[in-house]
């Protein structure tokens, strides 16, 4: 499980990121100002740092210089959207640059992309006896590979990333297929196929009037 440091002085935002990334399967540590972040960096070893630029105490650029020698990849999160700021951040060695306001999905995608790129990832999601290899795009069940279509794979990824939460049907459809949901049949069909292929008839629950949920262990 990748360890991620979140440095953000706005508690609402830091909390949101923490919740989202924890749910997505990352171990998160939050720092609300630069000095505390520096202490944390000194004492711990992080796989990735999300840095706000405008911070009380040390700002994001200062922290970046702290982090560079350790080889920890960095994603800047900032309200500053000008090209000048972006270039400055990237030229200093940030791995990516995320402009507020951002969507949680995008954040997670960027985090994964950076981790993969820096070789820190090779991330796998695991639930019960099923392991999802995001890098290889492979699913193993009890050591045996399971053959899934790309849609089924994406659907499974969504369910595994949000374990224990009941996901709404339309959001699921939107995230896997994209666009407005035309009918519920397609999603329901794919869920049935997943249950069958993984033998997860009781693991993927149907929540009345909501959608589907992957049971927690």
């Amino acid at each position: 499980m990748n360890r991620i440091l979140i440095v953000e002085d706005e508690q609402t935002i830091s909390r949101l990121i923490e919740v989202s990334l924890t749910r997505a399967g990352y171990a998160c540590t939050v720092a609300n100002d630069g000095v505390k972040a520096a202490d944390l960096i000194q004492d711990n070893d992080f796989d990735l740092a999300l840095l706000d630029i405008m911070l009380p105490g040390l700002d994001g650029y200062d922290l970046l210089e702290y982090l560079r020698p350790m080889g920890t990849p960095v994603i800047f999160i900032t309200a500053k959207s000008s090209v000048k700021d972006r270039v400055r951040g990237l030229s200093l060695g940030a791995d990516d640059y995320l402009v507020k306001p951002f969507e949680v999905e995008e954040l997670i995608a960027r985090v994964e992309a950076v981790l993969r790129r820096t070789g820190q990832g090779g991330q796998t999601l695991t639930a019960f006896d099923v392991t999802l290899d995001l890098t290889e795009r492979r699913v193993m069940r009890g050591g045996e590979p399971v053959d899934l279509t790309p849609r089924e794979f994406a659907l499974l990824e969504q369910l595994m990333r949000n374990r224990g939460a009941a996901l709404y049907r339309d959001v699921l459809y939107e995230r896997v297929w994209g666009g407005e949901m035309a009918d519920t049949r397609t999603l329901d069909l794919h869920i049935q196929r997943l249950r069958k292929k993984l033998d997860w008839h009781d693991k993927i629950e149907t929540v009345y009037r909501v959608g589907y949920r992957l049971k927690k262990e």
């Binding site: 989202s20 969507e103 949680v104 949000n162 939460a165 009941a166 996901l167 709404y168 959001v171 909501v210």
Partner: peptide, 11 residues
């Protein structure tokens, strides 16, 4: 946006 997305996508 973030919290609204959370509320919207799951229970």
């Amino acid at each position: 946006l973030g919290y609204a997305d959370l509320l919207r996508s799951m229970q």
